[in-house]
Design a protein around this nucleic acid. Sequence first.
DNA 1: ATCATAAACCTGTAATTACAGGTTTATGGC
DNA 2: GCCATAAACCTGTAATTACAGGTTTATGAT
Lengths: 356, 356
Amino acid sequence: MAKAVKHRAIFTALQTAIVSGHHQPGGRLPSEEALCRRWHVSRPTVRRALRDLQHARLVDIRAGSGCYVCDQVPTRHPTFALLVASLGTTEILDPIGAEINRAAHAAGGTVSSAPLPADGAAAGELAREWARRGTCGVIFAPLEHAADRECRNLELTAALRAAGLAVVLVDRDAAEFPSRSAFDVVALDNFHAGYLLGRHLADCGARRVVFTAKPEYPPSTDLRLAGARAGLLGNGGRQLAFKVGDPRDPAFTVSVCGVRANCDAVICSNDLTAAQLLQAATNSGRQVPRDFLLVGFDDVSYASLLSTPLTTIHQPCAAIGSACIQTLLERRQHPDTPPRTILLTGELIIRASTTR
Amino acid sequence: MAKAVKHRAIFTALQTAIVSGHHQPGGRLPSEEALCRRWHVSRPTVRRALRDLQHARLVDIRAGSGCYVCDQVPTRHPTFALLVASLGTTEILDPIGAEINRAAHAAGGTVSSAPLPADGAAAGELAREWARRGTCGVIFAPLEHAADRECRNLELTAALRAAGLAVVLVDRDAAEFPSRSAFDVVALDNFHAGYLLGRHLADCGARRVVFTAKPEYPPSTDLRLAGARAGLLGNGGRQLAFKVGDPRDPAFTVSVCGVRANCDAVICSNDLTAAQLLQAATNSGRQVPRDFLLVGFDDVSYASLLSTPLTTIHQPCAAIGSACIQTLLERRQHPDTPPRTILLTGELIIRASTTR
DNA sequence: ATCATAAACCTGTAATTACAGGTTTATGGC
DNA sequence: GCCATAAACCTGTAATTACAGGTTTATGAT
């Protein structure tokens, strides 16, 4: 227990009464004299407590009128909401989510998570619930790998915005490139990452390279592809083909890296695709890196544990997490500045899949 | 003059004495009783002023010891330094600089500018001078169009960092792509801008397109090129050639858009290049948009005033300016988080040069 | 010279009193 | 019913007094 200091006791009591919602926002506190009687103290003592509350931006003291609770109570421990659409399918969002958690705690806050709302009505419900509980804002990883993803993503972000919540998108935009949603996006610099892989393959002597992605690939893949193209063709590579298909389909795998494909190296749009392609190729007698080089993106947990450890781009998860929290807090302060894209630089991790 | 309120007068007097450096950081203020005698007021009055100073984080009151000036005085009017290497050559930096000024004033600060230091020693001198005067940080537009630009840019940023100044780069990175300097970069989303132009030309029916840039083009041109390629080839365009040369050289102009070049449209890496190409083409009897379409980047002041008003990408100068100031203030708070690339979205401005 | 102690000094808390001045509301005239 | 006015109410400023308790420094013993 702290020292029994009267003005401090009054401050604390009023503070908890305010943050607990006992005094509703905009409501008037008892007059100074009333507080004097209630606490059996003198007016300067009450005033001291009230001025401290004012400096803490919890109350607004108006001369002649009274002491009013501030409309927006600055939460001492801000709560952030995390909404990840594709948990499980994009493994990289798990470590990013963990880093968002860590960054939130470093900022003195907490993160509450929620499953993806099924439809617009459920999204509105969830958004209003979060707003009601004084949530600072929402970090949303938009849905990918779904035909109606853009529609659902926009529906969801619209619901969040309608509830007055600040929103930061992580990993990709909610709108399809080249459209741009009205929200900040925090992501890996996909073009740069692609460039690093393209140049690396060119340095390894690759000439005929294939870039593969699964059907309904997200827009970030386009940036990875463009970067890979620039990095490859600008550094001695001759050819980059883009092939869409599922690596679990043998016909597709053969067309990409079969003997007759005459292909030096394969860039997969992410590590999962690369892992599946590696397995399929191994099963059909093709070896990495002997027969072709293989690279992925994201550096997921098992990238180094594959039968041939995978060269890939390490996502700066910690930097992404702290950028999310920081951008969200900033966006709360300045709701009207145009949306920003915040890119973090990935790191090329060279493993056996490109080491002959 | 404000109301003659004693505690406020004492607060103001002490505040100005502190920020002006009359009381040096860490130094002790006169005791409360001494201030009472000096101001002919009672102790509660003096205490009121001191507590307000404490809440303003200007002083630190230690029981039994005294009232000490805080080590780092939070500047009420932060000063930012603006260092633009290539004034005059890249016209777009003038409006961006103006918007940086505006954003700084909106944040209650001021901007001081300086000519580019000639060498490393002069840079170190300037950086130390800024640090001595309590400058918040430096917004630096790295040098472009010079053979030794990367060396000089890195020398300069190293000097700024050595002086302990926060640095934000505007328009482009100091290091050459795909290298990445250790500083935040605020810039147009060049890839996205290129994509918009490429898609627009494809929509206009262009098939064989040339992208031109002057020799020693900056790295942002690579991104514009990659974006244009993605936007063109992904939307019906067939061919994008990249040609480097000076549009004031007739031979180069003819090779780009002469009759025998068989070229649908020309993308210039910026509006100045486009304006010069337009003039050269007109002089040799080629007309825009009749004979070929022409687009640029930046939307400089005269883009709409050319003989054929120019389709281009409007740079979000205001958004870039406010992002610079905000990023600089943030970077001061968190000096150790990894560098970020903050991209703002440009807008396609369609004018006569692509309207048949 | 060193160390423990006490004095001097300084801030922390609190009650009391007094008056100035802004805000709200009730009152009363129209 | 409307409006001006005054009363009631509330906060703003300020002086005075009193004592508690932490910090620094000077003093004096060892």
